[in-house]
Simulated assay, not measured.
Amino acid sequence: MKTLRLLHRWAGGLIGLLLALLALTGTLLVHEDAYLRATVPHATDAQRQDTATLAATATRVFGAQDRPRSIVLASEDQGLNRLSYKAKERGAYTDQDGEIVLAWASKWARPELWLFDFHHYLFAGDVGKTIAGVSGLVGLGFVVTGLILWWPTRRMFHLRAWPRMMKRAAIVHHHRDLGVLVAPLLIIGLTTGAAMNLKWFSQALRAPFTAPAVMQEASALPKIKGGKLAKDLDWAKVIGAAQARYPGAEVRIITPPAKAGGLISIRLRQQAEWLPNGRTMAWFDPADGRMVATRDAQTLPLGSRITNADFPLHAAKIGGLPYRLVMTVSGLALTLLGTLAVVTFWGNPSGLPKRKKKAAAKSAKTTPLPAAGKTA
């Protein structure tokens, strides 16, 4: 138990602040839609999913000389379309008629963009993504070891949002009790976060349900070559065909071919899907708008469907306001746990009470050195 406690303390002291920052940025991102509704024009507009509106928007957006590489359509939670361009940091919000209301050339121009970049990539691309994923696994280790360390002290449990006093003993007591209280939520957040960032971890979790090779094959792109994108493409025909193929599904993302021979892809979300943008797909030949392939997310292997639940669980994209508030509490709790772990550790790395530290120091000073020529 002593070794476990030492490992828990040192790991918390070294990585606690990173977990706290990841938790805080994640908590803010849970409320991204609310922030956009409060700060960006047309974000409060009601969602429009009729074929005529979607086709007119696609015609206008993709017919522009400066054509974006994709458009994420307005949702029930906020009424803006989002455009992404080949230059990765460049983007724009449009109203649902395709009129640009806000554009940016750098992620630093929009708080929701750089917050996401830090939370998911630590501003370091794929390397940062891996570090963030490993941090999630370490966080899971904290939860497990914390539960083990708490068990002998379970009869001293007290429900407090804040330590009784800002002294080490009180902070440690609060840290254990708060950690136990939010442990189920931390397990959800840390597991889904690590799974989204670490492919091998995600595959290991889903392997009992579906072999990784089967999941990879099920998500493979169709091996069909498309023609050249027609200048006068009938977007109403394309979008209408996707809606007819999946009645009642939301059209979420429209992506023209990125290179010669590519296909137009339309991503949809059926009512049973948790993922905000869905995983149901329809592909079209860009030359004539003919549907050439589809993929129903509800028929994917079980492991793939479980994987598709990671993001909505992690980012509170299901359950409405109640679940957003629950995950907000979880995120703020982890922020507090990580911050106070760092404060208490670096304030006293040895973990010894002050009186024992003084006694140890005094003993070291008064212990006589062995006489010359003799061994201790």
Rank of each mutant, 00 (worst) to 15 (best):
Lys2Trp: 04
Leu7Lys: 09
Ile15Cys: 02
Gly16Cys: 12
Gly16Arg: 01
Asp33Ser: 13
Pro41Ile: 10
Thr53Ile: 06
Leu54His: 11
Phe62Gln: 03
Ala64Asp: 07
Ile71Gln: 00
Ala87Ile: 06
Thr94Cys: 11
Gln96Phe: 11
Asp97Ser: 15
Phe116Met: 10
Ala124Gln: 15
Leu149His: 04
Trp150Met: 13
Pro152Lys: 06
Pro152Cys: 01
Arg154Phe: 04
Arg154Glu: 03
Arg154Asn: 05
Phe157Ile: 09
Phe157Leu: 05
His173Thr: 12
Arg176Asn: 10
Leu186Lys: 07
Leu190Thr: 09
Ala194Tyr: 08
Arg206Lys: 10
Ala213Phe: 00
Met215Gly: 02
Glu217Cys: 01
Pro222Leu: 03
Asp232Ser: 15
Ala244Met: 05
Tyr246Ala: 05
Ile254Thr: 10
Ala258Leu: 12
Arg267Asp: 10
Gly278Ala: 03
Phe284Trp: 04
Asp285Cys: 05
Pro286Cys: 07
Gly289Gln: 05
Asp296Gly: 11
Leu300Cys: 11
Pro301Met: 15
Thr307Cys: 02
Asn308Ser: 11
Ala309Phe: 08
Ala316Ile: 03
Gly319Cys: 05
Gly320Arg: 00
Gly320Asp: 08
Val329Ser: 01
Ser330Trp: 01
Ala333Ile: 15
Gly338Leu: 01
Gly338Pro: 00
Phe345Cys: 04
Trp346Ala: 09
Leu352Cys: 09
Pro353Lys: 07
Ala360Asn: 12
